[in-house]
Design a protein around this nucleic acid. Structure first.
Length: 253
DNA sequence: TACCAGGTAAAAA
DNA sequence: TTTTTACATGGT
């Protein structure tokens, strides 16, 4: 749950007083962690899929931990964090816009900017805010986004993405490389953004955001090697390894 | 007050 | 083809 607010409260995934609020299909869904499990209200066919992704259920943790125990450097970190499931971003459009806001700036700044966007263009649903829909952004002006703190450039990218004809849901059916190609063909989406989309939205096991500044530092600090050299060594669990390395590094830089 | 922060595209060299 | 620059906000 701490991952939902390490860099500040996220309006679209609002964690407060021990409860994570998320707007799903127009309803405020409350997710509460407790020893031994999670309470979700309401939990039904409409909310379950999103909740499962928010909680990182698609990851095969048992296989990861079995493998990590054999990786000398990662083993103690994985053991410390045993059971940690990286949250997935349930919505592809939201995932991409979120990444665009995080390009180049600190994640604290990114969260502040994203929250202003959600506040201005999203919809309040009880204790949660729905992230602005693709349609809402498509009909917005650059000025709307600039007023939230976007650079003029990022405002262009974001609106063009919303108005593009790319079927974001269909990306889930494509190979990692096909997804990289389709996404980086869009202006404003480079290798870093595409790789985090594979990692944090599609939960692809081999995703490895080597261009990420924090991951570079984590690789250097924990493994003492370059992030590009480390990637192949962590096959076939690059994605989960990246998340565990980042959390391990955040805890002890 | 500087300076840097989980990049990217476009301009300049 | 490779290197530099603009972008704009929030912490430290």
């Amino acid at each position: 749950m701490g991952r939902f607010r390490v860099f500040g409260t996220d309006l679209a995934n609002r964690y407060e007083d021990g409860v994570l609020h998320r707007a799903i299909a127009g309803r405020d869904v409350a997710i509460r962690a407790r020893p031994g499990g999670v309470d979700v209200e309401p939990l039904d066919g409409e909310t379950r899929g999103v909740v499962e992704r928010l909680l990182g259920l698609p990851f095969d943790l048992d296989a990861f931990h079995a493998w990590a125990a054999t990786e000398p450097v990662l083993a103690p970190i994985a053991a410390d964090l045993r059971g940690y499931r990286p949250p997935l971003q349930p919505d592809p459009f939201e995932a991409l816009v979120t990444s665009i806001t995080a390009q180049q700036v600190s994640l604290y700044a990114a969260v502040a900017i994203r929250n202003r966007l959600v506040d201005r263009l999203g919809e309040r649903v009880g204790g949660a805010w729905a992230f602005p829909s693709r349609e809402r952004i498509a009909s917005a002006t650059e000025g709307d986004l600039v007023a939230s703190g976007f650079t003029r450039r990022k405002a262009e990218y974001t609106i063009a993405l919303a108005r593009s004809s790319l079927d974001l849901d269909a990306l889930a059916t494509l190979s990692d490389d096909e997804v990289r190609l389709r996404l980086t063909a869009l202006r404003g989406i480079g290798p870093w953004t595409a790789e985090w989309f594979l990692a944090r939205h599609l939960a692809r096991p081999h995703a490895w955001p080597a261009g990420d500044l924090a991951l570079r530092k984590a690789a250097a600090s924990i493994y003492g090697v370059d992030v590009h050299e480390l990637g192949p060594r962590l096959h076939p669990f690059q994605n989960l390894s990246a998340h565990y390395l980042l959390v391990g590094w955040l805890a002890k830089p």
